[in-house]
Simulated assay, not measured.
Amino acid sequence: MSFFYNTVEITERFLTWRERRKYKIKLKAKNKWKKRNTLVKKILGIIREIVEVVLIVLVINQYILQAYTIPSTSMVDTLLVRDRLIVDKFTLGPELLPTVGKLPALREIKRGEIIVFENPSYVSPGVLFEIVYRFLYMITLGQLDINRNPDGSPKAVLLVKRAVGVPGDILHFVNGDLYFFIPWEGVDIAEKELLKDNPFFRGNPSRRIFDKDYYELLHKSIRYVFLNRAGIYSSVEDRLAVVKLQNIMENLYEKKLPHEDSYTSSLLGYYMNIALYPSEKQYLSYYMDVTGGIYVPPNKILPLGDNRDNSHDGRFFGPVDNKNILGVVIFRFWPPARVGSVE
């Protein structure tokens, strides 16, 4: 009996080996495809997760919070170069798309808040470039900046300053010191006095590089330069002032301190140009603006850097429209030693 069963089994194996072989090949191919399909699914799943994360980051950055890196010394000592900040965009009304439209703000900007806004002096290459540039900047949390000058330095597309002048203010400067004109009293009040109770100005955040002696030398030096240029004899005192000023600037270079007193230099330069070339209307116009004070119209803010002697700010380009203000700085997350709220 056993011999019979063995014979039948051997015969079946012999007759079906080809079919069994085909089945094994088919099963092996099926398992191989299944494995490959599983790998493809895993890769697609990872890609989908990455896309979802990128979209979430973009939505958060565009409408709620955005990372920003400090590029210059204009806000020293409050903010240092390469400080990394979190900016609240939702409160002041985020843009619908980069550079396109703006949602309504939840509240008005408070005097003393540190704001991020579009640089009025910046010339955009075009809307498409701006969208790509902002997209890359946002998803890399401010680490990738493709919008650069020919020398490789990043363009100043966005600026960070303190909202000092609010609608209705009239401000003017004397040797870099800020004064507010109070129309109903007919007097000027110094910044320190007017803002001493403002919580954002706790500790007097505005920083000065130069003292009164420096401004005296600067006045005399610029007078010497412009009189010399016009072929007019200048005093020995003015010529000595130039030498002293050069020594001060050399010391600043050696100590690697911020030294570009761009605001005061340009202002006094305009004064000298008015005296020497009174027919040039642009000099007279600027002079009238400065001596009459800077008026802040409705729906605008005058931003100033805390590092007053070394800041390109509203003193150059005037008040900034609320629609160009992107957000308020609320937190510093880098470097670790300086993590915390920003005032």
Rank of each mutant, 00 (worst) to 15 (best):
V296Q: 14
E193Y: 04
P154S: 09
K41Y: 09
K22F: 12
P94D: 10
S265W: 08
I56M: 13
H312E: 09
Y277I: 05
G176R: 07
L55F: 15
F129G: 01
T99K: 15
P297Q: 08
P167M: 07
F333G: 02
S265G: 08
A337G: 10
K41V: 07
T38W: 11
D313R: 05
W334M: 14
Q143M: 07
R162C: 01
D289Y: 03
R18P: 13
G93A: 01
V157C: 12
L144W: 10
I222A: 10
V236D: 05
E237P: 07
I131F: 11
Y286I: 10
V51G: 10
V242L: 14
F3E: 13
D321R: 00
F135E: 09
D188F: 12
R84M: 14
L326R: 04
L27G: 02
I146M: 14
A29G: 08
I46W: 11
N324Y: 00
Y224S: 05
D169I: 02
R148L: 13
A337C: 04
R36K: 05
A230G: 06
Y5Q: 15
S2D: 13
K89R: 11
N6A: 07
V157D: 07
M288F: 15
N228V: 13
I139W: 04
F201K: 03
A105P: 03
N204T: 08
K89G: 02
V236F: 14
N251M: 15
I274W: 14
K89T: 03
G231A: 00
V342Q: 13
S341K: 04
V187L: 06
Y68F: 15
D88K: 00
F180W: 14
V127E: 04
A67M: 05
F173M: 10
F181I: 12
E185D: 15
T7S: 09
M75C: 03
V54K: 02
V166E: 10
G165S: 11
V160F: 02
G45C: 03
V225A: 13
R20T: 10
N175D: 14
A230M: 11
K323E: 00
D321G: 02
L245G: 05
L55E: 09
Q62W: 02
L128Y: 11
P258R: 03
I50P: 07
L141F: 12
S206Q: 09
